[in-house]
């Protein structure tokens, strides 16, 4: 096989078959995919959760992860946030001409490993080749199922369900993924790693605990500020968080300072917000901290009624800051 992706790999002919056989089918090995039919048929009973996401990150590999791991975690976490158990994924690859085939293999293997960790199977896929400079994009769609024993507790979990006197928790440090990606593009040496991770264990433990979770949401683009503002708006409640309680890796804080960014608006790929009754907060916190990727979970605030849709932050010096969703793109500034 050639070293680089060419237009022939997207022709649907022999080169395409070769690519599928030697890379995708090999890595994603499972009976549903191996049938190589026009569509995958999977057994499901009851309601399902459906989601899709596209991944366009550059560079393709970064400290702590790569686009392969990312495209599994992102979709898996979206399914989890509704209380579903991720079961099946599909993936669409858009490869640019010139992509290194060795790299494609490596990224596909990483994708397969992440799928294994998350307990999902890749049931269907597609590959296209476009002109370009050796990059790649991946779209994944996912199906999640609601196992009988959790469906009652999980069914009401949604963005608008926060109630007055609920507690707000996050599962760990903010801004890690954003900082890891930016550091690859800027001339700043650091060992900050992306937090891209599937939160299967944590969500599974939370759901199994029988706690009355009102809202779960993964903290991705736009960061904690954006996610909480959206949840405050959706529920019509006031969210008040404490600056001092928000976990931020000191390295990430310092990195953000160098570029004039605010960790509250920096994205993650393996963190979540949980909102549930205050009296259950301590128990939820313990469960999160014991779960994989949750050792730095924290209770960061509470829900009240007085200012519908507002997100407020009690600052370290005792001020009150009103937060909005991320405005603009979060570009590094200097001046």
């Amino acid at each position: 096989m050639a070293e680089k992706i060419t237009m022939a790999h997207g022709s649907g002919g022999r080169s395409t078959d070769e690519l599928i056989d030697t890379i995708f089918a090999k890595e994603f090995d499972n009976p549903v995919l191996d049938a190589m039919e026009d569509s995958a048929v999977v057994p499901v009973t009851g309601k399902i959760a459906l989601t899709t996401d596209s991944f366009v990150v550059t560079p393709l590999k970064f400290r702590g992860g790569d686009i392969g791991r990312l495209c599994v975690c992102g979709t898996v976490n979206d399914l989890l946030m509704r209380g579903a158990r991720p079961a099946w994924l599909t993936c669409g690859f858009i490869l640019e001409e010139g992509l290194d085939i060795g790299l494609l293999k490596e990224l596909t293997a990483s994708m397969a490993a992440a799928a294994k960790e998350a307990g999902v199977r890749i049931a269907a896929g597609d590959t296209k080749v476009v002109e370009g400079h050796g990059g790649m994009y991946i779209n994944t769609a996912g199906v999640g199922i609601f196992p009988k024993e959790t469906s009652a507790a999980a069914s009401g979990i949604c963005a608008s369900a926060a109630r007055a006197s609920d507690a707000i928790l996050v599962s760990g440090t903010m801004g890690d993924h954003h900082a890891a990606i930016l550091s690859e593009r800027m001339a700043i040496e650091t060992d900050i790693e992306s937090d891209n991770a599937p939160l299967v264990d944590m969500v599974g433990n939370l759901l199994a605990s029988g706690l009355h979770i009102h809202t779960m949401r993964d903290v991705t683009r736009g960061g904690l500020g954006t996610v909480l503002k959206e949840l405050a708006a959706a529920s019509g409640k006031t969210f008040t968080i404490r600056e001092s309680a928000i976990p931020v890796n000191p390295k990430v804080r310092s990195f953000a300072g160098l570029l004039g960014l605010d960790p509250v608006y920096m994205g993650n790929e393996g963190k979540m917000v949980v909102i549930l009754p205050e009296e259950e907060a301590q128990q939820a916190l313990e469960i999160m901290r014991k779960s994989r990727y949750g050792s730095q979970a924290a209770i960061i605030g509470r829900v009240t009624e007085e200012k519908p849709g507002e997100l407020l932050m009690e600052t370290d010096i005792g001020g009150l800051r009103r937060l909005d969703v991320l405005q603009g793109e979060g570009l590094p500034r200097i001046c």
Partner: peptide
Amino acid sequence: DFEGNEVR
């Protein structure tokens, strides 16, 4: 060094 981030 800035707490683990280095700049030339």
